[in-house]
Amino acid sequence: MNSPVNTGAPVIALRNLARSFEQGGVRIDVLRGVNLEIGQGEIVALLGPSGSGKSTLLQAVGLLEGGFSGQIELAGTQAGELNAADRTTLRREHLGFVYQFHHLLPDFNARENVVLPQLLLDVPRKDAEIRAEELLGALGLEHRFDHRPSQLSGGEQQRVAVARALANKPQLVLADEPTGNLDEKTADRVLDEFLDLVRGQGSSALVATHNERMAARMDRVVRLHEGRIS
């Protein structure tokens, strides 16, 4: 396990974060006052069984939906005080996402899937293409730039998803069971590549998993239990 790099203000700080749902007239408290800070360059595993609320917590941190109480401070900005457009801008500028299923755009090739998020931040197309090819090359996909997702293996698709998440050099990468849909050998390789790239560009990461072995390779492990972090 590597020692965390934790200097300056945290990249993300959660204060008393809570989320409840109504189901069949019954109130279900998924998050019950989560407090968590992640430092600059720190990779944190969010460990918990299926149904423990890991994905709900990542949706909150990712500013993907409302209905939460408490505070989310991302890159020094109180996200709860922003309107929808400003939250979208904050998310695009500071966050990257990797999911269990790659969610690549099927009509675009690997290079284009990594270029597109950069264009949303007005990166010149040529620079975006260079960045995409650098990332895909680092992930062993030098000969797959022009292949669409349907022409790639599951591991290759997930590598493209990793490259897409890192394309804009986000301060924080959110990964939800990023290798959960891969066989163990491929999962280990993709995780190694993901961690190397995140550390190499100095980003932080919050990686949700139920896999103890995977979690042990992060800088720090936190556990989500009964709606709280321990």
Rank of each mutant, 00 (worst) to 15 (best):
A9W: 00
V11C: 11
I12E: 05
F21H: 14
F21W: 15
F21Y: 15
E22I: 14
G25W: 02
I38T: 00
I38P: 01
G41S: 01
E42D: 08
E42G: 09
V44E: 03
V44F: 04
A45S: 10
L46I: 03
G48I: 04
G51F: 13
L57S: 09
A60M: 04
G62E: 12
G62L: 13
G62W: 13
E65Q: 15
G66I: 07
G70Q: 13
G70W: 14
Q71A: 13
T77L: 00
A79V: 08
A79F: 11
L90I: 13
R92Q: 14
F97I: 07
V98L: 11
Y99K: 01
L104S: 04
D107C: 00
A110Y: 08
A110V: 06
E112T: 10
E112D: 08
V114E: 06
K126W: 01
A128T: 09
E129G: 11
I130D: 05
A132H: 07
L135A: 04
L136M: 11
G137Q: 01
G137S: 07
A138L: 14
L139G: 09
G140S: 11
G140W: 13
G140L: 13
L141A: 02
H147I: 00
R148G: 01
S150T: 02
Q151G: 06
A161S: 14
A165E: 09
A167E: 02
Q171W: 02
V173W: 08
D176R: 08
E177V: 02
P178T: 07
T179C: 10
D183K: 04
E184S: 14
R189L: 08
D192E: 14
V198T: 15
V198G: 02
G200F: 09
G200A: 12
S204L: 11
L206S: 10
V207K: 06
A208T: 07
T209H: 10
N211R: 12
E212I: 09
R220H: 05
V222A: 04
H225R: 12
S230H: 07
